[in-house]
Design a protein around this nucleic acid. Structure first.
Length: 465
RNA sequence: GGAUUGGUAGCUCAAUUGGUUAGAGCAUCUGCCUGUCACGCAGAAGGUUACGGGUUCAAGUCCCGUCCAGUCCGCCA
């Protein structure tokens, strides 16, 4: 018999159906057994009475086993309706009960996973994800993906995939490296962001690009940082700072309206603070502007604009505060080298929600002469520039549209919208703070044969004295 | 790399100033229970107190080291 999902059962009173799913709970009253069967959409109560051929099977069944139940859908009497479950107005009188796959003793209880240690949850993530809370986060993430793709597509943006096996970038975060088998001693790097590719796509004439894409950074973890994380990456040509800000703002506001309608905005229209103002007033470039921080449905969104272009490094020299491709504000282009480096302002903007940096982007320099001057100012030698950025600068010789973009830290956005304190809660299979995956037990050692093929010898970390 | 908090039953926690046989709830197992829906009741089982060393008549508790986990700083163009 064909399977019926729990969400359709209330409309099928009197019909014989089969439901498939997991045993959510079992209540044995001696002469009557209730089983709650759970599928992706909800729960239905099964009733089994003595005399039923499968009564003993039902007595013995363990919670979280996968079962099949065939029986007639009956209306519950008014006083026995359970409004808390999707099929609460009906129940199924079991005629045939089959165990498809039994469940062993559980390592933790699934009803409320918020108080189980994260290590245990991650080790058995496939059980953790059965919980209502995790399922909700996964469903919302899917809905958000669909919404964003649809929204940006309607605006004329093309989703373009960029490579994961790419080139190590000299600045920024530490790279994850992938050894090349064909080229001994050579390495690919996993992208810290598709920054260069998305700019090259503008030179390629794509004009409007987006991608929901994984990024990799080999830095130490935080509650809002993972070694691999997802960005909604956007780049467009012939636009200015205001256009990108408007697009991003509308995208996020529409997303919230569609999928998180319970959320309320504290500040409308969304305020724009300069970096200088934010630091002076709030001593941070990601202020939390909520009025009531205990209200889980309050969202205080703001933009921080006019970031400084350069920042002083430990050795006293200057580095780019974001990246060297960031465009200067027009008034600084002609003579930024002669000004106080800390007062040079870039066309750079960040979106902050409830004190979390959710998105950041900039207009990029499309004039190759200005780009070279920035590199020179950052004390790169000509040979250095050629080696590190030559491939990129070459492209700038062939007709570059003015362009800019933004990247939304998607996991952080979802963390805030799903009322979680940690991005690991909105990532199906996250790593621990140490960059490990307790479920797959990665990273792990590999066989010598594999290392030999990759021309690699390893050295165990020296013990501390 | 640094700081800090923690590691006690399958899970979540307790254990007074260092002092009797390390307790409780849930989960598990056994028995009872025909309307529960986180069912209920009675009972049982379950411990190398992360690991190693030290102080002490006596260590879950104090000290040292190691391992593991969380949070924060550094780091994150």
């Amino acid at each position: 018999m064909k399977r019926v999902l729990t969400k359709f059962l209330s409309g099928l009173v009197g019909e014989k159906v089969t439901v498939l799913g997991w045993i959510n709970s079992k209540r044995n009253h001696g002469k009557i057994i209730f089983l709650d069967i759970r599928d992706r959409f909800g729960i239905v109560q099964i009733v089994i009475l003595p005399g039923n051929d499968d009564y003993e099977k039902a007595e013995k069944i363990s919670i979280e086993s996968v079962v099949s139940v065939t029986g007639v859908v009956v209306k519950r009497p008014d006083n026995l309706i359970n409004p808390n479950i999707i099929s609460g107005k009906v129940e199924i009188q079991s005629e045939k009960f089959e165990v498809i796959s039994p469940c062993d003793k559980l390592p933790f209880e699934l009803d409320d996973t918020s108080e189980v240690s994260e290590e245990t949850r991650l080790k058995y993530r496939y059980l953790d994800l059965r919980s209502k809370r995790m399922k909700k986060n996964i469903v919302n993430r899917h809905k958000s993906n669909q919404f964003i793709r649809n929204y940006l597509s309607k605006k004329g943006y093309l989703e373009v995939e960029t490579p994961f096996l790419t080139k190590s970038t000299p600045e920024g975060a530490r790279d994850f490296l992938v050894p090349s088998r064909n080229q001994a001693g050579m390495f690919y790097a996993l992208p810290q962001s598709p920054q260069q590719y998305k700019q090259l796509l503008q030179i390629a004439g794509i004009e409007k690009y987006f991608q929901i894409v994984r990024n990799f950074r080999d830095e130490d973890q935080r509650g809002d940082r993972q070694p691999e994380f997802t960005q909604v990456d956007i780049e467009a040509s012939f636009i200015d700072e205001k256009d990108i800000i408007k697009l991003t703002e509308n995208l996020i506001l529409e997303l919230i309206k569609a999928i998180y309608p319970e959320k309320k905005l504290t500040l409308t229209p969304i305020p724009r603070l300069t970096y200088k103002e934010a630091i002076e007033i709030y001593q941070t470039d990601r202020p939390d502007l909520r009025k009531d921080k205990n209200n889980k449905n309050e969202l205080a969104i703001c933009w921080i604009v006019d970031f400084p272009m350069f920042e002083k490094k430990d050795d006293g020299s200057y580095g780019p505060s974001h990246h060297p491709f960031t465009a200067l504000k027009k008034e600084f282009i002609n003579d930024f080298e002669k000004q106080d480096p800390e007062k040079v302002i870039a066309q750079q903007y960040d979106l902050v929600i409830n004190g979390n940096e959710i998105a950041g982007g900039s207009i990029r320099t499309h004039d190759v002469a200005v780009l070279k001057r920035v590199f020179e100012f950052l004390e790169h030698t000509q040979a250095d520039i050629e080696e590190k950025f030559g491939h990129f600068l070459k492209a700038f010789m062939f007709g570059v549209p003015p362009h800019g973009g933004i990247a939304i830290g998607y996991d952080r956005l979802l963390m805030v919208l799903n009322n979680e304190n940690n991005i690991r809660e909105v990532i199906p299979f996250p790593k621990t703070g140490d960059g490990k995956d307790p479920l797959m037990d990665s990273p792990c050692r590999v066989e010598k044969k594999q290392l030999d093929e990759l021309h690699i010898t390893t050295q165990d970390r020296k013990r501390k004295k």
